[in-house]
């Protein structure tokens, strides 16, 4: 290949281009490079998409870690056995809520294996026989500075458990527990949804009521904003901090 040939060609092209330029200027007032306005738009779109996917797709799995519950507990099976929720989740005399039942409760029925289920075997050998409490992971656990009253909502507010917790009461299996690696808070109280783009937990239940079926798998969000939004709606109050904090 000869370089002179190339050079000549380049010069010729250059001249052609210049000439073309002059011609274009004569024919129509369209300037070359008008398409350049697309560069910032394309750059913005590219930047937006890359940061958008960074924030929505890549970061969450980095930020949230996942753990499994110690035992795969079936609410559906046990609610049928026990009859109601109060058999395990009840109010104590001083108004406090019992929360997740203690091992003693399980031992009432599971002193000896009733079935073949390996989870039941695990329950007996790892917890009931050594008398060790099961370290359940609590999806709804709030930070230490938060005060929550089940009595206010369940007794006075006559609210259903699923309004806040989602359909845990009818589940067959426990779902994984996700928590924020930095704060160690459960994801349920912090961020299933970003910027409130999907609706609040109690709205899901409304949808479920209409369609007759609960569609959501995740429990409701129990962020401060969620609590405050319902309080505004139901109680008409813009509460002082010390209603929910301690």
């Amino acid at each position: 290949m000869s370089t002179t040939e190339e050079k000549e060609q380049a010069v010729a092209e250059n001249e052609q281009a210049k000439g073309g330029d002059e011609q274009a200027a004569e024919v129509a007032p369209v300037k070359p490079g008008t398409w350049r306005f697309l560069i910032p738009i394309a750059a913005f779109a590219l930047g937006f998409m890359s940061h958008f996917s960074l924030g929505w797709v890549i970061l969450p799995p980095i930020l949230y870690a996942e753990k499994q519950q110690p035992i795969d507990f079936s609410h559906k099976l046990h609610v049928d056995e026990v009859g109601d929720c109060e058999g395990c989740h009840y109010f104590r005399e001083d108004g406090s809520f019992s929360g997740i039942p203690e091992l003693e409760n399980c031992a009432e029925c599971h002193e000896e294996a009733m079935g073949e289920d390996p989870e039941e075997a695990k329950l007996i050998t790892e917890y009931i026989e050594p008398g060790k409490e099961i370290p359940w992971l609590i999806y709804a656990r709030q930070p230490q500075c938060v005060f929550f009253s089940h009595a206010a909502h369940v007794k006075m507010g006559e609210m259903d458990c699923a309004i806040c917790h989602g359909p845990i009461g009818d589940s067959d299996h426990v779902r994984p527990y996700q928590y924020n690696r930095l704060t160690k808070y459960s994801r349920d109280i912090w961020g299933w949804n970003i910027a409130g783009l999907s609706k609040n937990g109690w709205d899901y239940l409304k949808q479920a009521d209409n369609s007759g079926e609960i569609k959501i798998e995740h429990a409701a969000r129990m962020k401060m904003d969620d609590c405050a939004e319902c309080h505004m709606e139901k109680r008409g109050t813009h509460d002082a901090c010390f209603v929910c904090h301690k």
């Binding site: 001083d94 108004g95 009253s149 206010a152 007794k155 006075m156 010390f242 301690k246």
Partner: peptide, 20 residues
């Protein structure tokens, strides 16, 4: 805080007994 947590506890008990 005027032992505010005692107020919360007292109210919680009252709610469980369905009074305000």
């Amino acid at each position: 805080s005027f032992c505010y947590h005692r107020y919360q506890r007292a109210k919680n008990k009252a709610y469980a007994e369905e009074r305000r």
